[in-house]
């Protein structure tokens, strides 16, 4: 069980990055301003880089000779361990941005904790990813503030996005057995601590954005244990198309 927990934990980190990168990269060439085309491609690029690090390590932990590409391209939806938040559809640009912001906040504080993980490889990957993610959060946080406190329309769109996505964000900070077992060993990020850091950050940033988080919204979860929404199958069908259509080919 402990080895399995570690495999699961590292898969979660990698799958979050991969599925979000898939979503975000759809905006290439379609964003509201050129600077956003560039920034979103850059975010997706960072996330794919992190995916490769996490999934390579997951393959090593598993010890069955699966590469990062095998894990990305040849698993079905039930074996994916990403949270529900990152698989949510792009919606309008406000929804894409809010999804990014909620994820970045969790990601930032989690990686901050993982830099001190008892697992040396995790600490190493976190160290590298944390620099990129600090920048992602700076950017998404800043845009959420500006649009929340922009026009009435931009405010309404950002508030609607927050109302819609907030219930999914809870999954990230809700610990389960995998988190608990690995937190005890000093390997995983302590989600109680991450949760309080995220809350403090959210409170301050959302106030500045003149947005308010829904109260007592029930948490929507399942992705971390492989119970996804219907959308994930389509994301994978698209992503895995060439590997599935031409089995064994090298590219």
């Amino acid at each position: 069980m402990p080895q399995d927990a570690l495999f699961d934990y590292v898969l979660r980190m990698g799958d979050n990055c991969l599925v979000l990168a898939q979503r975000v990269s759809v905006w290439c060439g379609h964003a509201p301003v050129l600077e956003e085309d560039i920034a979103l491609a850059n975010t997706a690029l960072d996330l794919i880089g992190q995916t490769r690090l996490w999934l390579s390590y997951a393959g090593e932990i598993e010890g069955k000779g699966r590469s990062a590409d095998d894990l990305a391209y040849l698993r079905d939806a039930r074996a994916f361990r990403n949270c529900l938040l990152v698989e949510q559809p792009n919606g309008d640009f406000g929804q894409t941005l809010m999804r990014q912001f909620l994820f970045d906040a969790w990601h930032h504080f989690t990686l901050g904790a993982l830099k001190n993980s008892a697992d040396g490889r995790i600490a190493e990957i976190a160290e590298k990813a944390a620099k990129e993610v600090a920048y992602h959060l700076d950017r998404s946080g800043d845009l959420v503030i500006r649009l929340g406190d922009g026009t009435a329309e931009s405010h309404n769109r950002m508030q609607a996005a927050l109302d819609h996505l907030w219930p999914f964000a809870g999954e990230l900070t809700t610990p389960d057995e995998v988190d608990e077992a690995l937190t005890q060993k000093g390997v995983a990020a302590d989600l109680a601590q991450v949760e309080s850091q995220v809350s403090a950050y959210m409170e301050k940033t959302l106030a500045e954005a003149t947005l308010s988080a829904p109260k007592d919204a029930p948490v929507r979860k399942g992705g971390k244990t492989g119970l996804h929404g219907e959308e994930l199958g389509y994301i994978l069908a698209e992503m895995q198309f060439l590997q599935r259509a031409y089995p064994g080919a090298t590219w």
Partner: peptide, 10 residues
């Protein structure tokens, strides 16, 4: 689709 975004920032 991006008009509201650009207007919001301005």
């Amino acid at each position: 689709d991006g008009a509201w975004f650009r207007d919001g920032l301005m």
